[in-house]
Design a protein around this nucleic acid. Structure first.
Lengths: 151, 151
DNA sequence: CTAAATGCAAAACGTTTGCATATAG
DNA sequence: CTATATGCAAACGTTTTGCATTTAG
């Protein structure tokens, strides 16, 4: 699916909740599309959208992200550094897409695998808890920083 | 290991980093010990310590938690609701202790199991990333709220 | 005597909200 | 004409910081 199709798809999503695909929202989405692995903060998204649309306000970025999150177009992640990051939700991948966070340089890479399907079944049985989503992050050292640490 | 022993242990930890086990820090630890499954916020810890030590300040609570976290006595967790929660690190359990967070009532329960040992080995091999810690949380509905939702 | 720790108030930070204005169905 | 969306500035809640004071090795 190319970018135009994705945008059309999102437009339909928005219209179903009587919302519009405004230039501001489109800019936010474009920024997210061109930084698929960027895990951008709201502030960063704001700065990038400002290049496309100089008059955009930070509040609009937050409101756009909030809306898009509700529509499941955007996924919000937290690393515990006090700010949220955002990325486009990738169809079919939600459950298989985990983050590796380097404690030295902060780089975020990804690891895809359906690690948790079985576990969630067990939780349903053993803990009487219906899982709808999960968040799995690994902390440690990337190859680059591991070398440095040893030096 | 009883509470006094734990406290002695922590005292030694602190002394190794030329820090003291002050009444304020002791109060913070006692509060955490008496709310092992409470997942308290800093504000809540502050209110509880105030009962033990009325003159304590919120900043001191934050500073104590920060220090204890560095010493691995306290574990800080984030749910993405804008504030951090704290709990005592339980020896040997870190890797087997995950959270179930109810999206309806916010209740946090736990699920213990070594789910991730194998996976971390694979990450080391496949992604060239040395895992030192992880964070796994499941979101969904607890038994109580599941019933309500259906009603 | 000196290094560490405290309480308080102020500042900082990311995020949200109120409101008047603009935009589009 | 009415809903929805926007930009700006002010407000918000959590966390951090500066600083003068206190505490303890």
């Amino acid at each position: 699916m190319n970018k135009k199709q994705v945008m059309q798809d999102i437009r339909k999503h928005l219209e179903q909740s009587s919302s519009r695909l405004t230039p501001q929202r489109e800019a936010v989405i474009q920024v997210l599309m061109s930084h698929q692995t960027g895990h951008l903060s709201a502030e960063e998204i704001y700065l990038y959208t400002k290049k496309l649309l100089p008059e955009i306000g930070l509040a609009t970025v937050y409101r756009s992200l909030e809306l898009l999150e509700k529509l499941n177009v955007v996924y919000k992640l937290e690393y515990g550094d006090g700010q949220s990051r955002y990325e486009l939700t990738r169809a079919n991948e939600e459950h298989y897409h985990h983050h590796l966070i380097c404690q030295s340089c902060g780089a975020i890479s990804e690891f895809n695998d359906d690690l948790l399907g079985d576990i969630e079944k067990r939780i349903a049985e053993e803990a009487d808890f219906t899982v709808t989503d999960h968040c799995l992050r690994f902390f440690g050292f990337c190859a680059k920083c591991r070398t440095k640490e040893q030096a």
